[in-house]
């Protein structure tokens, strides 16, 4: 397991290989946050570099009050939001109950289609992924940090600067809305579960 104190101390002493270790350990986390928030690939790559440069620059100010990954996730999230604001890309914050209504209509089977034309499992996953993409920024980030990065409610709360209860609530609401969208698509006859 990575000894964060040792590795940070080595970076602060100018050890570049130690910083490589930090990049490799956290590249997945940063890229997942970026994939959820930044729509353009080129912008993601630019921001990916800027985030790690910022981490390197501010590492001396890191006081180990949280895990290094939580601190890096916080930087990645804040820098992504700043980037979206700077580029004037609208950021949605609130989750409405009809967020997927348009999407589900797209997936509805037409009258003239054969009733046995069902979405395959991959299409179902793609449908869910597209719905996840439609979620507001912080909901997407919370889902990613919880499910992919295995971060706890507390760690996500620290990274996104929100209470643990809010994190739980957002996570529950997002998953429930996504589940409802799947059931709705199923009722429309788009696919069956195995």
């Amino acid at each position: 397991m990575l000894d964060e104190r040792k590795i940070v101390a080595r970076v602060l002493q100018g050890d570049q290989d130690a910083f490589r270790v930090i990049i490799r350990t956290h590249q997945r986390l940063v890229m997942h946050v970026l994939l959820k928030l930044i729509p353009v690939a080129e912008d993601r790559e630019e921001l990916y570099q800027d985030i790690f440069l910022q981490v390197h620059q501010r590492l001396g100010a890191f006081r180990f009050q949280s895990k290094l990954s939580t601190w890096i996730a916080q930087i990645a999230y804040n820098m992504s939001l700043n980037y979206l604001r700077k580029k004037r890309i609208p950021i949605s914050w609130e989750l409405s109950d009809d967020i997927f209504s348009g999407k589900n209509e797209t997936y509805s089977r037409g009258e003239d289609e054969a009733p046995d034309v069902l979405l395959e499992q991959e299409e179902l996953k793609s449908f869910i992924q597209q719905n996840i993409e439609q979620l507001p920024a912080r909901y997407k980030t919370i889902l990613t940090l919880y499910h992919i990065e295995d971060m706890s409610y507390k760690e996500i709360g620290q990274a996104l600067k929100m209470p643990e209860g809010t994190v739980k609530n957002y996570l529950f609401r997002a998953r429930k809305l996504l589940k409802d969208s799947i059931l709705k698509a199923q009722q429309n006859g788009n696919f069956l579960f195995e």
Partner: peptide
Amino acid sequence: AYSVLFEVLAEGSTSFEQSEALEEKIMAKI
């Protein structure tokens, strides 16, 4: 529905082909 959703949520993305090149750029800058 929840099972499929949890499966998809845990999958994440694997499109990190550029990560090594990006790492080199970062190292060059620092």
